[in-house]
């Protein structure tokens, strides 16, 4: 289980995360949504052990995350910065040596599924191909937790569709917990079990997607509009 208890994260005077508390259970797919700068990437970095809270506690399976948390958490960064001089084959070989849960056979299946060639240097790949390659190495792991930071950012609809298909085909929904941070909700709405909405570093809502649809008759986007409108009214008052 991943837990946040009254977590604050500051960068200089700016509060990136403000009084955030939630718990994520195993075997579910979560969406972390909100506008740019709402704290989505920072939240994922705090879970991955790439950043540390200024106040409060973050735990992954009861332990405070640090660099070694990478053993149980697979993290796909939002940054478009794979090693440019590597080929996809080099990258897969490297990951295979670093992560005991990395499945090289699955990685090559994913590579083929994503229509990527293994011997072209990464610097010669298109942005869409690099985006898919990041997903290949993340999904080829049997990690308990999978964190995807803006996996659709800057990608065309065809690539987005292939990424969603990749998620559906290669994730073990029994064992793995998936947390996707994005502000492009339409692509993932059908996948999600629960959604967490962030605004200005605060968690302003946390709902089950099924309950939203059945009880409130709203899609996530419609629900978010309602939330943000009421949040704006509160701020005016």
């Amino acid at each position: 289980m991943i837990e946040f208890a009254e977590v604050y994260k500051k960068y200089g005077k700016k509060k990136a995360i403000h009084s955030m508390s939630f718990a994520l259970e195993k075997g579910k797919i979560y969406g972390l949504v909100g506008p740019n700068g709402s704290g989505k990437s920072t939240t994922l970095k705090l879970i991955a052990g790439l950043a540390y809270p200024s106040e409060g506690n973050v735990t992954v399976n009861g332990k405070k995350p640090d660099r070694k948390t990478a053993g149980t958490v697979a993290y796909l960064t939002e940054l478009d910065t794979l090693y440019p001089s590597f080929t996809p084959k080099d990258l897969i070989s490297f990951y295979d040596t670093q992560f005991s849960d990395f499945d090289q056979t699955r990685a090559y299946e994913l590579l083929s599924f994503m229509s990527l060639e293994k011997d072209i240097k990464i610097k010669h790949l298109s942005k869409g191909s690099r985006g898919r390659l990041k997903l290949v190495v993340a999904l080829a792991r049997d990690a308990e937790y999978l964190l995807l930071d803006e996996p659709f950012s800057g990608l065309d609809p065809m690539v987005r569709e292939s990424i969603v298909k990749g998620l559906l085909t290669f994730i073990d929904f029994e064992k793995q917990t998936l947390l996707i941070a994005t502000h492009e909700i339409a692509e993932i709405e059908a996948l999600l079990d629960e959604v967490l909405v962030l605004q200005n570093g605060e968690l302003i809502a946390h709902e089950e997607v099924e309950a939203l649809r059945e009880e409130k008759g709203l899609s996530i986007i419609e629900w978010m509009k309602v939330i943000f409108q009421s949040s704006a009214k509160r701020n005016e008052i």
Partner: peptide, 15 residues
């Protein structure tokens, strides 16, 4: 390079 890619630090092996 590693600080930019974040690939080096997201690694379970010892420092």
């Amino acid at each position: 390079v590693e600080a930019k890619t974040q690939l080096w630090l997201h690694n379970p092996n010892s420092g």
